[in-house]
Design a protein around this nucleic acid. Structure first.
Length: 431
RNA sequence: GCCGCUGUAGCUCAGUCUGGUGGAGCAGUCGGCUGUUAACCGACCGGUCGUAGGCUCAAAUCCUACCAGCGGCGCCA
């Protein structure tokens, strides 16, 4: 097994013995009798130096032919040198071109459009790689927290026959002569699963057909959704904040290097601590009106207002108790004052917007049926869901966390599109 | 869906207002080079100016339509 003898760039330490690495050319600088080549692998970068008088002619010739992003095999002795990355460089004894390839199209100057056209190549950039590493730990952190707190991971369907959000935002497809849709949320299915497992979650792609052009929307995103039996509105927010706190600190622990390379100000991440601030929708409107806005009690909190709120509050916060008619049929209405419902949004700091929407679900059969009708849906499309309130219905709550929204904020990126290797947006289905 | 902007070399852009033989940097090729840090120096190569039509002696430049993309908003995770 030759693989066993290879090491990674980050493992290179000064030594007397020859090491072997393989990877791709990050940079190469050629001089008369010396060539500096910086090897990139999954772990990072390491500089190698080739000298004509210390290599066999075929190795030197191969090195001379090498260009950016060629796949290479290097062998040499690592020596300490302050002029190299991480103060170590490999003095080459042998060098092979695994694949020379064509001229790499991505260079210093690149536009947003060009990057998107070449996303399949751009995703190997150092910049992107750091994001993928953080995102992997966002997902892993979430799974660890759920596991440690007694949640079961489940696998609800992505192909569905009925809507969960608004009908206008569904991707339609043909399904053996019938119409089906791509899932916008697996919430309704998770609600069915609580009757056996009580605490469940799922990590699935969700699809929204909105024709939006913003820095915080993508048409396909990864949804981390939880659902819990015998948990009320308050208990649900506690779960959400603990989950987010755990993920943020998990990433800080495991990706400090990546965050620093992204020039992320990590102090705001370090300060994430439960309990998060909570303000009611009503208080949010009042606060905004005290700060120059002129909103009525049932106006939407739009992007501009949301940013202002975030600026005023300065940390992660929940907006709770929205007007009932703003929210879908499955949200539980406050029985004492039906104007309000048990729905909350978790807002990221620094104006990054909503990370989570969650709330207590309507568990009363008659109210649920009435609300489905009020919203203009056919009850026959939701019969199975309505059924759940007929056989041992219990109070329960749940939420949906956007994996990309969270990664976007943790990394402090310009656009959420950067958190997916192949972001699906209005004008992009290729590559 | 609405509003705005852009389209010129493989890439990033200048040139468009004020019409008169299309430029630079990077990449590439060749040569040089003192341990380079997206090296540096010299030469060369590189174009259907998004597409179609119109005005004009003459259009990258002015007009019309179309196409593509980018940005913002609605919405939401």
């Amino acid at each position: 097994m030759p693989e066993q003898s290879y090491i990674y760039a980050k493992e290179v330490k000064p030594s007397e013995v020859t090491v072997k690495l393989r990877g791709w050319v990050y940079r190469i600088r050629k001089m008369k009798d010396k060539i500096f080549v910086i090897l990139r692998d999954a772990s990072g970068l390491v500089q190698c130096i080739g000298s004509e008088d210390k290599m066999k002619p075929e190795a030197w010739n191969a090195l001379n032919e090498t260009a950016i992003e060629n796949a290479i095999h290097v062998e040499g002795i690592p020596k300490e040198d302050a002029r190299a990355i991480n103060n170590v460089e490999i003095h080459l004894r042998n060098f092979k071109l695994i694949h020379k390839g064509e001229i790499f199209p991505i260079a210093k100057d690149k536009s947003k459009e060009f990057i998107l056209d070449n996303t399949h190549l751009f995703l190997r950039s150092y910049q992107s790689t750091n994001i993928w590493k953080v995102k992997a730990n966002v997902l892993r952190g979430a799974r660890e927290w759920f596991f440690e707190n007694g949640f079961y991971e489940t696998t609800p369907p992505i192909l569905t026959g009925s809507a969960c959000e608004g009908g206008a935002t569904l991707f339609k497809l043909k399904y053996f002569g019938e119409t089906a849709y791509l899932s916008q949320s697996v919430q309704l299915y998770l609600e069915a699963l609580i009757y056996s497992l009580e605490k469940v979650y799922a990590v699935t792609p969700s699809f929204r057909a909105e024709k939006m052009r913003t820095k915080r929307h993508i048409n396909e995103f990864w949804h981390i959704e939880g659902e819990e039996a015998f948990v009320d509105f308050e208990g649900n927010m506690k779960i959400q904040e603990e989950l987010v706190e755990y993920i943020v600190h998990f990433v800080l622990e495991n990706n400090r290097k990546e965050l620093l390379e992204m020039e992320r100000d990590i102090s705001i991440l370090e300060s994430v601590k439960t309990p998060f601030k909570k303000i009611t929708y009503k208080e949010a409107i009042d606060t905004l009106n005290e700060n120059g806005f002129n909103l009525k009690w049932d106006d939407d909190i739009k992007t501009e207002e949301e940013r202002k709120l975030s600026e005023i509050i300065g940390e992660a916060f929940f907006v709770t108790m929205y007007p009932s008619h703003h929210k879908p049929f499955y949200v539980k209405i406050n029985e004492d004052d039906p104007k309000w419902c048990y729905s909350a949004d978790l807002m990221a700091p620094e104006g990054f917007g909503e990370l989570i929407t969650g709330g207590q679900r309507e568990d009363v059969l008659d109210t649920l049926v009435r609300r489905i009708k009020e919203e203009g849906w056919e009850t026959k499309d939701y019969e199975w869901y309505i059924d759940l309130r007929k056989y041992g219905s219990v109070y329960h709550s749940g939420f949906g966390l956007g994996a990309e929204r969270l990664t976007w904020w943790i990394c402090g990126l310009d656009a959420i599109q950067e958190t997916l290797p192949f972001p699906r947006t209005r004008n992009r289905i290729y590559p």
